[in-house]
Computed example of a mutant assay.
Amino acid sequence: MNVGIDKLNFFVPPQYIDMVDLAHARDVDPNKFTIGIGQDQMAVSKMTQDIITFAMHAAQPLLTAEDLAAIDMVIVGTETGIDESKASAVILHRLLGVQPFARSFEIKEACYGATAGIQFAKNHIQANPESKVLVVASDIARYGLASGGEPTQGAGAVALLITADPRILTLEDDNVMLTQDIYDFWRPVGHQYPMVDGHLSNEVYINSFKQVWQENCRRNKRTAADYAAICFHIPYTKMGKKALLAGFESDEPAQQDRLLARYEESITYSRRVGNLYTGSLYLGLISLIENATILNENDRIGLFSYGSGAVAEFFSGRLVKGYQQQLNKQGHEALLDARQKLSIEEYEQLFDEKIDVDVNKTFNDDLLYSIQEIRDTIRYYKESNE
Rank of each mutant, 00 (worst) to 15 (best):
I5H: 07
K7V: 08
K7H: 10
I17K: 11
D21A: 15
D27R: 13
F33Q: 04
I35K: 15
I35A: 14
I37Y: 04
S45R: 11
F54G: 04
M56W: 02
M56C: 10
A58W: 00
Q60T: 09
L68I: 06
E79C: 10
T80F: 00
S85C: 07
A87R: 10
V90T: 13
I91P: 00
L92K: 07
H93K: 14
R94H: 13
L95H: 12
L95N: 12
G97V: 03
V98E: 12
Q99K: 15
F105N: 08
F105M: 13
E106Y: 02
A110G: 08
G113K: 05
K122W: 00
A127I: 00
A127M: 10
N128Q: 12
S131Y: 01
A141Q: 09
G144S: 12
A146T: 03
G149K: 14
E150A: 11
Q153M: 09
Q153V: 03
L161R: 05
I162F: 04
T163M: 10
P166N: 10
T170D: 04
L178W: 02
D184W: 05
R187T: 02
Y193W: 07
P194A: 14
L200A: 13
E203P: 00
I206S: 08
N207K: 02
F209K: 04
K210M: 13
W213D: 03
Q214R: 02
N220G: 01
I230R: 06
F232T: 02
K242F: 01
A243G: 11
L244C: 11
G247M: 06
S250A: 12
R258K: 14
Y263K: 13
E265T: 14
T268C: 14
G274D: 04
L276M: 12
T278V: 03
L281R: 05
L288I: 03
N296P: 00
N296T: 05
R300W: 00
G302Y: 01
G307I: 01
G322L: 07
Q325F: 04
Q325V: 05
L327M: 13
A338Q: 11
K341R: 12
Y347L: 08
F351Q: 04
E353A: 14
V357S: 07
V357E: 01
V357Y: 01
L368G: 05
I374M: 11
R375E: 05
D376C: 06
Y380D: 00
